[in-house]
Write a protein that binds this DNA or RNA. Structure first.
Length: 631
RNA sequence: GGGCCCGUGGCCAAGCCAGGAUUAAGGCGUCGGCCUGCGGAGCCGAAGAUCCCGCGUUCAAAUCGCGGCGGGCCCGCCA
């Protein structure tokens, strides 16, 4: 029984005590600032002080007298400190309870009671005309961790990646390769997705400045949407090549998907037409007859409160040339996610992923995909898309999304470059003095995920080789890879999602301090103790933890479910990362002060180390970090 | 013009949504210690903070409200 469970029991007991006294107020529980004050506290006496017009301390005394401590087995005593009611846990029973819980639950340790839901998570969503960069990687890492977390809690999770193959960007590349005869074979040493990104940066501008090419591009978009023609098939082949490369990058980071939803298939499946029809039936759309948007199908938003502050709230869903906009398609796609549309995608098996699971892809010539619709659809998108996502949500309500379903845009801030890194990449001196430089695919100013991994790997490889000169090349490379991906994943997940990340290379290759490798190092040195001890312990009856380091480590381990419970409400993955750091800190302090292997084996400490490994291991699984026993 | 987000030691940052009790975590950097002892990718210690400013709510504000200031973003027949 950890902090979460004990806090809940205390909440109930205090609630009963209040009942006896005739007081009715919600019982808040918290952790006291220093351990000497107690393990769990409630400031409930302060909440009552005002209406009772009495001193908190007196009220606390009164409440404490009514608390039935016998119902709280692991509580040793209760104290009143200036009005705070502090519960002091039994120094033996509490650790024993926590350790035995961890040792018996193992891979399930940390799970909390939930109402099981079917949850669809969409993430990554990079345009299929360029490589994944550190911005899309943040998206993917957040999405992947969310998926892992929700699965860990016991939800049914479907992970999808939306491939925007019918938009403007793919059209640019198609025009370049198909009409302007840019070779489709990348130059030596460049992956196709990276090459594609360069072609885009070069030709996007050329096309936008030439009226003839612009007309051609509009025609290409229409052909791609229609399908069943050479241009559409050509474009699909281009996109598939890029997506394959993007998937390889994602796999390197331990990110896998269940299904790829191609935007063209939103149209070809009839889902798009269905959604537009539904909106039309309900009078939510109209054809604009004048002005800049003449001839476009618009959705009416001008009278909706949330959109009042926009200059021109109504949004284009179908352009005057008959092609669909991103928002239009996304409304339709979202209606599928939640099972609102009777139309189905056709899918086929595409590629086997390194995790053994075959990824499905929507495809014109596939089989009907049976999906009853998610209870909750989470879309991981960067903050700049907040308004369009609000439009999607609004449209879904109009189409008839039941209140039991939830459409949840999961917004996060983008990744930008430090002036120094941007200037190094481009050799543009003038960028150096800038604090923040935003990435831009069009300007070719992007830091690719592949390049980041290579850079980090190089540093990690050196360090690993230094430490293990006797190991095989294969072993060193494998371990270095695990450390590198952990390093990148951790650095992208540990920051609050509302904060802009200013990416800097010299910071990215750091392996000490608050980093993924630090966590893995801590895990590995704990593994060494278990191995060297050469015994095993499955439960404990007694412990004698006298040092603050032991007590602190026990408490940290016991807080895991509390942390996950909070995270399940906020979906803030960084709080789990921060917890892992605290857990590692506690272990390292313990490690210095409390030997496990002395003349004999300290069984209680051994059990504590094992509990630490299980807890940290479960957290690794959630955040997507490999568990290595030697690094 | 309107809206959203951020503002915590030189730098990065946790805590803020669910207000409390202390020296306001931690990391980088700086300075000083610790390996014949379970792995120094570590540990211990030192210096370093008007929690952007003002007003308000409250017994209590980094945390809540209002008003400023500074930075970023959004308001496209791009996605």
């Amino acid at each position: 029984m950890g902090f979460l469970e004990e806090a809940e029991k205390i909440r109930i007991q205090v609630g009963e005590a209040l009942g006896k006294l005739g007081y009715y107020v919600e019982v808040r529980v918290e952790e006291p600032p220093i351990p000497e004050l107690g393990d769990i506290a409630t400031p409930v006496a302060f909440d009552l002080a005002k209406e009772l017009r009495r001193k908190p301390s007196e009220i606390a005394e009164e409440i404490i007298r009514e608390i039935d401590v016998s119902k709280l087995e692991v509580v040793h005593h209760v104290s009143n400190v200036n009005g705070f009611i502090n519960f002091h846990m039994d120094p033996v029973k509490y650790p024993v309870a926590i350790i035995n819980e961890v040792l018996s639950k193992r891979g399930d340790y940390g799970k909390i009671p939930i109402v099981r839901k079917r949850i669809l998570i969409e993430h990554t969503n990079s345009n299929p005309n360029k490589a994944l960069h550190i911005g899309t990687l943040r998206n993917a890492v957040i999405g992947d961790s969310l998926a892992r977390f929700l699965k860990f809690l016991g939800h049914e999770v479907l992970v999808v990646n939306y491939i925007d193959d019918s938009g403007s960007q793919v059209a640019d590349n198609t025009v370049a390769h198909y009409f302007m005869k840019v070779p489709t074979k990348p130059p030596e040493g460049l992956k196709f997705d990276e090459y594609s990104g360069k072609v885009y940066a070069e030709y996007n501008e050329k096309i936008s400045r030439d009226e003839e090419l612009k007309r051609l591009k509009s025609e290409v978009i229409r052909k791609i949407e229609e399908g069943g023609n050479e241009i559409a098939e050509f474009a699909r082949r281009l996109s598939e090549e890029v997506v394959k490369c993007q998937l390889e990058t994602a796999w390197d980071f331990g990110i896998f998907y269940d299904l790829l939803n191609w935007e063209t298939d939103v149209i070809r499946s009839g889902i798009f037409q269905w959604a537009m029809k539904e909106l039309e039936k309900r009078g939510e759309v109209y054809v604009e007859e004048e002005g800049v948007n003449k001839g476009c199908l618009m959705i009416k938003l001008r009278d909706v409160e949330e959109f009042k502050n926009l200059k021109a709230p109504d949004e284009v869903l179908i352009r005057s040339d008959g092609t669909a906009t991103y928002v239009g398609k996304d409304i339709a796609y979202a209606s599928w996610k939640l099972g609102l549309t009777p139309r189905k995608f056709k899918v086929k098996e595409w590629i086997q992923q390194p995790n053994g699971k075959t990824i499905l892809t929507t495809h014109e010539y596939g089989e009907d995909y049976e999906f009853p619709g998610a209870d909750i659809a989470i879309t991981v998108v960067d903050k700049r898309q907040e308004y369009p996502q609000m439009v999607v949500k609004h449209a879904l309500k109009k189409i008839g999304m039941p209140p039991s379903k939830e459409y949840h845009p999961y917004l996060y801030e983008v990744v930008a470059l430090s002036g120094e890194t941007a200037s190094e990449m481009t050799s543009l001196e003038e960028l150096k003095s800038r604090k923040v430089v935003h990435m831009s695919g069009r300007r070719g100013l992007v830091f690719n995920a592949n390049d980041l991994l290579k850079t980090v790997f190089q540093k990690v490889y050196e360090e690993t080789k230094k430490r293990h000169p006797e190991e095989s090349e294969e072993w060193i490379r494998k371990v270095s890879m695990c450390l590198s991906t952990a390093s990148v994943r951790y650095s992208l997940i540990k920051t609050d999602r509302n904060n802009l990340i200013v990416f800097d290379v010299k910071d990215a290759v750091r392996l000490e301090g608050d980093t993924g490798p630090y966590l893995q190092y801590t895990y590995a040195r704990a593994c060494r103790i278990i191995e060297k001890a050469g015994v095993d312990v499955d439960s404990v009856n007694e412990v004698s933890f006298e040092t603050p380091e032991e007590q602190d480590l026990v408490k940290q381990i016991g807080k895991f479910s509390w942390v996950l419970n909070t995270a399940s409400k906020t979906l803030a993955m960084n709080t789990i990362a921060v917890y892992m750091r605290h857990l590692a800190d506690s272990f390292n302090s313990f490690y210095e002060k409390c030997p496990v292997i002395t003349d004999g084996i300290r069984r209680d400490r051994f059990a504590l180390v094992k509990s630490f490994l299980i807890t940290m291991g479960n957290a690794f699984d959630i955040i997507g970090i490999e568990k290595l026993s030697i690094i």
